[in-house]
Design a binder for these strands. Structure first.
Lengths: 337, 337
DNA sequence: CTGAAAGCGCTAACAA
DNA sequence: TTGTTAGCGCTTTCAG
């Protein structure tokens, strides 16, 4: 391109990148653009990244690509990043410890400028995370707070209490919990996902003096099939729970189906509640009562946090608590009699 | 690392990359690994890509991140790619022409090794696509056939005919179509998505002599809200259709909700059919009758096609037709009386 | 079996 | 206002 325009590489670089304090004559500028166009020139981003020591890519790791909630977060991240001139590299770990580790390693090697993580095995990943930070790649964590990381915490705990209070107010005393968070392919039990809701559940049970059989909490995997089985167990309990909450809307859909297949009416015989308020929740029949999480906003905020730190690495770690809110729809009602 | 191990960069490179026909003494090999570990060395993938002239990244463009069907494809792509040592760069265009163009441009600059595209504006993008190919980046297209591209075609046409035949066999003569494919933010009408099903629909109407009011086909945007409006229009028709098919399961869910909200029973008063067989389809109530698309397999096959071409660029363009199959569940039944 | 050296395509001091 | 030059971190011929 330089040869074609009759100038040096430097000049071309200045012109094409619109380098601010490089004064180039209009004439040269025009010639360069013309040459670039006529040659269909495309800068090589790989070389640029190498030289600039910055890729302008944000790495995003989500735990489960099947769950619409995480896609919403991803959308938020992507939109915001695009607005600010960044690309997003999305990886899902499907709640698999090994994939999580690999994802982080790969993101580190690819030298993404920063990471937004919603990882599930933080203890075991501490070394990975340290390594990434040692590389100077900042991290924003979505989920639970970590002492020296920027964190975005979805206040599911408060939402869970709201949801349970709502059920109790309707008269429910025996509430099942489909706790679909364990990693099916992993022997490691340290998954942190959902602990907030579990704590809130236990606390509410305590406070309201609700039934507390251990069986009312059914841990299971993150796929619909797992939720179906867990729901089966719950329905087999005697007395049967009059309400079931699921760790997220995605699984709540399966819970609802399983309950209906068992010949029960929702909410007449059994109420159901979920978390996230995925877009589909309102289009189910009955429409799902759920705890809204504003996923897209979460994604956007995560980008903001990351870029703020990128700009000023000295900032003290930020912890943002994102509010949730109960959305009462049709799937909850007073228990029978 | 080289200095630390007391050898040259070359040797380190050989050892770390396990370069096949470089014979290195066991002793040196060990020393190099040790040095690398103790220094927490991570190869810089950017530099590697620059030098190797290959990034080992596959670009994937999907049209709508809200629709679970496309995530399934993405999962298939990602899994297969990971197995073969590639990473995936995922972008969704949300059926927006400008975003589609930008996505392609960016993918080209980032020098991905190849692309898997499910683009919706092929005519307008012809230049972009040509430019990419001129760069030597092979393309696999998912969707409709293009003469000189590797293509993966989902046989929705055949599936649509199966679905309509099924409805006709049940006794339906008046079938609405929620055709949710138009790009809301784009003035360009050349979207190709769904044309296969539209053609099949028209053909079936012809063949079976079904009702053919133009209003029975309701074009609309790709979001649930659009489908809700389109369904409203369909329900307002007199006589009312006795069955409605939606361009995909994602929208079929909304159609179902809208119909139920209108006080009708599904399938008693009105049957509903969709396409894709997204994982949720079977968990709805009533469970959705749909045309299964085997999305994950599509993703895997796409990777296979791409890598085959990467290995042997001289191959003649491959066109693969992926079969679909009707899955009859609970949402279709004979029309009333 | 190992090392020296060239260079991938670009940017940014520094000179002119 | 423009050009010269030195790398970014790695791979890979080619010689030793």
């Amino acid at each position: 391109v330089a040869r074609r325009a009759g100038v040096s590489q430097t000049t071309v670089s200045f012109v094409l990148n619109r380098t601010p304090n490089a004064r180039i004559s209009e004439d040269v500028r025009r010639r360069v653009w013309e040459a670039a166009h006529s040659l269909d020139y495309e800068p090589n981003a790989v070389a640029q990244s190498l030289r600039r020591r910055s890729t302008h890519i944000i790495g995003l790791v989500i735990p489960d690509a099947s769950n619409p909630h995480f896609w919403q977060i991803a959308r938020g991240v992507e939109r915001r990043a695009a607005d600010l001139g960044y690309s997003v590299w999305l990886t899902s770990t499907d709640l698999n410890f090994e994939r999580e580790r690999r994802a982080l390693a790969s993101l580190r090697q690819q030298r993404v400028d920063g990471l937004i993580l919603q990882v599930q095995f933080p203890v075991t990943l501490l070394r990975e995370i340290e390594a990434i930070r040692a590389h100077g790649q900042p991290i924003v964590r979505i989920g639970r707070p970590s002492p020296d990381l920027d964190c975005l915490i979805l206040d599911y705990g408060a939402g869970c209490i709201e949801l349970l209070d709502h059920l109790v107010a309707l008269g429910h005393r025996r509430i099942g919990f489909v706790f679909g968070t364990t990693a099916p392919n992993s022997l490691r039990p340290e998954v942190e996902l959902g602990q907030d809701r579990l704590e809130a559940y236990r606390q509410a049970v305590e406070r309201h003096g609700l039934d507390r059989d251990a069986d009312l909490v059914q841990p299971c995997g993150p796929e619909p099939e797992h939720a179906r089985q867990a729901t089966g167990c719950l329905l087999a309990l005697r007395p049967r729970p009059t309400a079931i909450i699921a760790i997220n809307d995605y699984l709540a859909i399966t819970v609802m189906r399983t309950v209906i297949e068992a010949g029960l009416h929702v909410p007449g015989d059994l109420s159901i509640g979920g978390f996230d308020d995925i877009p589909l929740a309102q289009y189910l029949t009955p429409a799902l009562t759920t705890v809204r999480a504003n996923a897209e906003t979460v994604g956007e905020k995560a980008v903001d946090l990351l870029l703020a730190r990128l700009k000023d690495p000295g900032l003290s770690p930020q912890h943002l608590l994102m509010p949730t809110s109960l959305v009462v729809r049709e799937s909850t009602e007073a228990p029978p009699h």
